[in-house]
Write a protein that binds this DNA or RNA. Sequence first.
DNA 1: GGTGTTAGTGAACGTGTGTACACATCCTAG
DNA 2: CTAGGATGTGTACACACGTTCACTAACACC
Lengths: 226, 226
Amino acid sequence: MPAPDSITDKLDQIQSGRESRGQRTRLGLQEAALRLLGHDKSFSSLSLREVTREAGIVPTAFYRHYQTMEELGQDLVADSFRTLRQMIRSVRTDGLPSSGNMIQGTVQVLVQHIHANRLHFQFIARERFGGYSSLRASIRDEIHAFGQDLATDLAQFPILNRWDPESVQMLTTLMVNTMVSIAEQILEAPANDAAAEAEIVRRAERQMVFISLAVPAWKPKAAKPA
Amino acid sequence: MPAPDSITDKLDQIQSGRESRGQRTRLGLQEAALRLLGHDKSFSSLSLREVTREAGIVPTAFYRHYQTMEELGQDLVADSFRTLRQMIRSVRTDGLPSSGNMIQGTVQVLVQHIHANRLHFQFIARERFGGYSSLRASIRDEIHAFGQDLATDLAQFPILNRWDPESVQMLTTLMVNTMVSIAEQILEAPANDAAAEAEIVRRAERQMVFISLAVPAWKPKAAKPA
DNA sequence: GGTGTTAGTGAACGTGTGTACACATCCTAG
DNA sequence: CTAGGATGTGTACACACGTTCACTAACACC
């Protein structure tokens, strides 16, 4: 395969140990911040020195990677939603588990993903209405984009396919709100309390079923042109 | 009416100018904190000195009223939900406006109340998942209590009156979530943008109508004994 | 193999913070 | 009128903070 140097090769050249030194400590800063947010702290009450201390680095080295804490926050937002998009994509290719019931499968995937990325979700939940307005804006936009993504998946249902776009968006907003609420409940529940969590899941499923019952009764404004 | 000294009289004795000095500056601290939260700041990133400075008081005087900032926060939570309960009570006695349509009336009252108590709502939204776990817990409990309150009002509908309690709670949870979402959208929208706000209200009403469509289709577990 | 860029270090600064303490002022009760 | 508790003041200290600067170490490239 005498292919010419690709972008991937270029990247590999920079990497000495899987990642360049810079990338590694940059990642270290992100993880340090997330770890600190796990305890009782909001991002805006997190100090630069605290983060660098947790990352095992001298405070001034922070500036090699970010001009300000707000920039770190933006990076964390982007990262969190990147993993969320991976979740959607994997569902699209591999399908849902417990394939008989779509709602149960969806909730199950969501909960698993929350557990696998607990700190990311905690960060998003905490900063969605936190101190930095730029972070609030980014998160709002990302959640909206997630809703749009969900809408395209929902289009597989013939009924919804004939709805006007605004009605579809209303449905997705409602579902996203529910999913956000589920995430927040899971995060707030005492970790490792399986019983409490099962109860949350059960209620969430009932709630989603309830919402779905409204679908056949809804009269969209105008049929979508075929 | 030669009634004996009542509690009210006792209170009046303490008050020199409508409120005792202590009460006044205590209130000053609360308002100062709320004002500061209006700008880009979360409560946990608010410093004791900042609050006292805004309140026009020397830092050490803070301790005459609260042991810690967290205590101030608890006071603010209690205050915010006290005004919320007033809203419910006034609706119960005076009824909804635009009495023809219950959903429109409800949304209208909510939005008016948010504007009249913008800072309180902003505080709650910001601290619902903010840095202090004790505040998160208090807010969660208060919201839950609000839902219970709503449930009793919903019981005026005969259909719901025959639902099992858990189904009713699911409905109220869904409605409370929607109302919280409305509040958050209103707060996040640029203040004094009437058009944007009208759009939010319109969408919220549609969403509430949609939810209500599921009610007739829902099959509660068991009929409530008459 | 030397050289220049990139990433991390260490000391130092001015400023803001929480809290302790002794003191001044207000207001009420006797 | 005055004694005493409640409320607010001013000073002081030890510490954490963000940011500066000159420095060293690591690594990529010719």
